[in-house]
Design a protein around this nucleic acid. Structure first.
Lengths: 226, 226
DNA sequence: TTAATATATGACCACCCGGTCATTTGCGTG
DNA sequence: CACGCAAATGACCGGGTGGTCATATATTAA
């Protein structure tokens, strides 16, 4: 279940514990500093191997990072797949709740990968093709859009909903919640950062309630938006 | 109205055009690369001055950045103040709309400052006290919370709304919209990046509609959230 | 045991960084 | 013109980067 990664034949032949130490050091370094500011020298030091060896396992810093990211992406996909399958017949809000909870669970179980994944998504760091990152992001938006689409067919949604845009907005809420869960300064003092399960429940409730009914009082007739 | 910045006595005494060239170069560099990866060497080259001079104007890279950020923050505050004053008596959704439009306007009028401001907010880059950034962010959330609070007193909101959390969520939507407006890969193909005013209107409408009434159909009785 | 091969190593490379400072330049004044 | 001072300059510093490669060390085969 921890299960490191292939893609480097030499690296794969390593003794498992050495392999794990190197992989762990890479996770630590990238999670702490992102791609650009991660240091191969530091990584080598904390892995306890020589620089020459590391560059025999991975030709470039980028190649190592790609392997790590590929792992993270695969894991995220697995979490999403599970949500899709487990909740297919549930009402849309329940599905959203499961999606959010799945995100928190992912962070709890893979905090370093989560940092790396979200950093990649948010940073816009130079050496990554916009296409690749864009694809990554749209994949998550599309996942939400599919759920919304299904819900509309079931008559659960307002007719006037713009599914694509709404999915994008919901995705942004999701990303913010998750990011705040593992990042200190984002929602300081609001109980989201490393929050206990009670606090998290409150946040999920507030989010779902906003998604469900919006914020205005029911009898607020005027339609003066735009 | 362009109005550069004080804080460095030597820099202030410069001939206005030279001053402007240096300031502009700083904006370009920080906007393109953020704080950490901005290069003073590059800055100096594009400003057409010597490195020694730059470091006489500003003791450190950080001091220069602080001046730039201070400017950006002051400008943002001015935009927010204007929204608050101009819309005080408007209904809450109208106020939200004005807030969003004001954000787009800020980006149109100060694209480089916008990049720097949002980069600072999002990056979590090392050399900035979490407190300072956190304050910056909470100030924007608090602005929204104030509007919500006023609206609740006027009976515009559902009773069950959690104002603090909702303000935080709305702020996250706002940040995403604005970020996608000036960042290519965030909402690729959805018409938000450098969108024309018609596309922007659609996004604002979708956002306000979600905020107003949520996404579920009115007669979806079951309350199975959480 | 010896020879051949696969892996590990860290000194080294070119290049970049933020920052310094002895020196030169330009200018206002007597 | 000559002086003195403020401002401009860029070579230079220590330290960091990703990446290389000749050499040393294990491992395996004969």
């Amino acid at each position: 279940m921890p299960a490191p990664i292939p893609k480097s034949k030499l690296f794969d032949k390593l003794a498992p514990e050495k392999k794990a130490k190197v992989y762990r050091a890479a996770l630590d370094e990238f999670a702490a500093h992102g791609y650009r500011n991660a240091s191969m020298n530091q990584l080598v030091k904390s892995a306890g191997i020589s620089k020459g060896s590391l560059f025999q396992y991975f030709k470039t810093k980028r190649a190592l990072f790609d392997v790590v990211v590929e792992n993270a992406v695969d894991l995220v996909k697995a979490y999403l797949r599970r949500v899709r399958n487990d909740t297919f017949h549930a009402p849309v809000l329940k599905r959203m709740e499961k999606l959010i909870r799945s995100g928190f669970k992912f962070i709890d179980e893979h905090p370093l990968l989560a940092r790396i994944y979200f950093h990649l998504l948010l940073s816009g760091e130079a050496p990554f093709s916009t296409e690749k990152i864009s694809l990554l992001r749209m994949q998550s938006v599309q996942f939400i859009a599919d759920i919304l689409s299904t819900a509309r067919d079931r008559g659960e949604l307002r007719e006037s909903i713009d599914i694509e845009k709404t999915a994008f907005l919901i995705n942004s809420l999701l990303e913010t919640l998750l990011r705040s869960y593992y990042t200190e300064f984002l929602a300081s003092g609001m109980g989201l950062y490393h929050g206990n399960s009670e606090q998290i429940d409150e946040w999920i409730a507030a989010t779902l309630s906003l998604l469900k009914s919006g914020m205005t009082s029911p009898n607020d007739g005027e339609d003066n938006a735009i």
